[in-house]
């Protein structure tokens, strides 16, 4: 156990895991519709997403903009925008369906049992209040802390996210800190009340490379120390390689592939996953060749084809692909993919 881990363990006592075999989160066939801009149509932005997630494990939700990955995350938090509505499915969290809960009940869970980290730390905190104020809010609300106990917890939380001289930092304002430091503060706020589930939506996209690597290290450490169930929403396979146990790839609102991270990297079954992986410039090698691309344009949710949504851009398309959307099929080892040709080797 490193010094930082020991420090973190001191701050938040480990919550006993109730039944280790049961997943903490079980999303089943989640469907979300969004009213189109002109209000005329309902778009299926999330189209039957399912996954289990255990404590201490990390799921990466990967996809490009508009694929429904962030909407899925917001639905778990009960923070969907007004133009969106849940059209079906379940989100089981510690044995309860979150989608059946009232806004008031969700408010008791948010920040306490389920927390979220957003993309840009520079705008995630209210510029007019000190770090200390904003860290105190969830502690006062959910844990009813005050006075010396509150102060002590604030300091140890900043220590848990490796922020030096925490007493000074508590009195500072967001504009006095760098992006990497602010994202740590956001992380401290998110874990303040010892949540079981942490959702991080593109947590390092706005950070510089060194700050990004450090923050991913921190997330891994917090997950291990507190046995957090962690969901990382990202467009970057590098983030999943660093952090995740399982990966879920989304395209046009649907899950195209899901499986253990090594399976996904070594044996991607869906052509979209394959193409995304091939499109990453491999820094590890000195390749001065051309990148593999995915031809065509990102899908338009208002004009999805009748069959497989990826068919118009797919290099191995078959006539069948244009007729019927492929179902998710089991590939073995918890690996599923929705491609008519996924069984072929």
């Amino acid at each position: 156990m490193s010094k930082a881990d020991a420090m973190a363990a001191k701050v938040l006592p480990l919550m006993p895991e109730p039944t280790p075999s049961e997943p903490l989160v079980e999303v089943r066939d989640l469907r979300i519709q969004l009213r189109s801009r002109d209000g005329a149509r309902l778009l299926n932005v999330v189209n039957g997403v399912s996954f289990p997630l255990h404590r201490g494990r990390t799921l990466g939700i990967v996809g490009e903009s508009g694929c429904g990955k962030s909407t899925t995350a917001l639905a778990l938090m009960g923070l969907l925008p007004g133009s969106a509505r849940v059209a079906g499915g379940q989100v089981q969290f510690a044995g309860e369906n979150l989608l059946a809960k009232s806004e008031k009940e969700m408010r008791e869970l948010r920040g306490a049992k389920i927390s979220m980290i957003f993309q840009d730390p520079m705008v995630a905190l209210d510029p007019l209040f000190t770090i200390g104020d904003q860290l105190a809010e969830p502690l006062e609300r959910h844990l009813k802390l005050s006075g010396a106990a509150l102060r002590e917890r604030q300091v140890s939380l900043l220590q848990a996210v490796s922020i030096p001289s925490p007493e000074t930092r508590l009195g500072q304002y967001p504009h006095q800190m760098s992006g990497g430091m602010l994202q740590r503060v956001v992380g401290a706020i998110a874990i303040a009340c010892n949540p079981a589930l942490l959702i991080a939506d593109e947590p390092t996209t706005a950070l510089d490379p060194t700050a990004q690597a450090q923050f991913l290290d921190l997330l891994a450490r917090l997950r291990d120390t507190y046995q957090l169930a962690l969901i990382v929403v990202t467009h970057d396979f590098g983030v999943t390689a660093r952090l995740c146990d399982d990966v879920l790839v989304m395209y046009a609102g649907s899950v195209v592939e899901r499986g253990p991270v090594r399976e996904i990297f070594d044996h991607p079954r869906h052509p979209y996953t394959q193409a995304l992986l091939a499109a990453i410039p491999q820094a590890q090698e000195d390749r001065q060749g051309r990148l593999r691309t995915i031809e065509g344009q990102p899908p338009d949710l208002a004009r999805l084809p009748q069959g497989c949504a990826f068919a118009p851009r797919c290099p191995n398309v078959r006539p069948k692909c244009h007729e019927l959307p492929p179902p998710l099929r089991e590939m073995g080892d918890g690996h599923v993919a929705s491609c008519w040709r996924a069984g072929e080797v």
Binding site: P209, T210, Q212, A213, Q214, L216, D236, F237, G238, V239, T240, A241, R242, C244, V261, R262, F265, I280, Q282, A283, Q284
Partner: peptide, 13 residues
């Protein structure tokens, strides 16, 4: 330090 912060291209790396 800068290059050591590049994210791995594979989970085993």
């Amino acid at each position: 330090a800068l290059f050591s912060s590049v994210l791995p291209a594979h989970p085993d790396r």
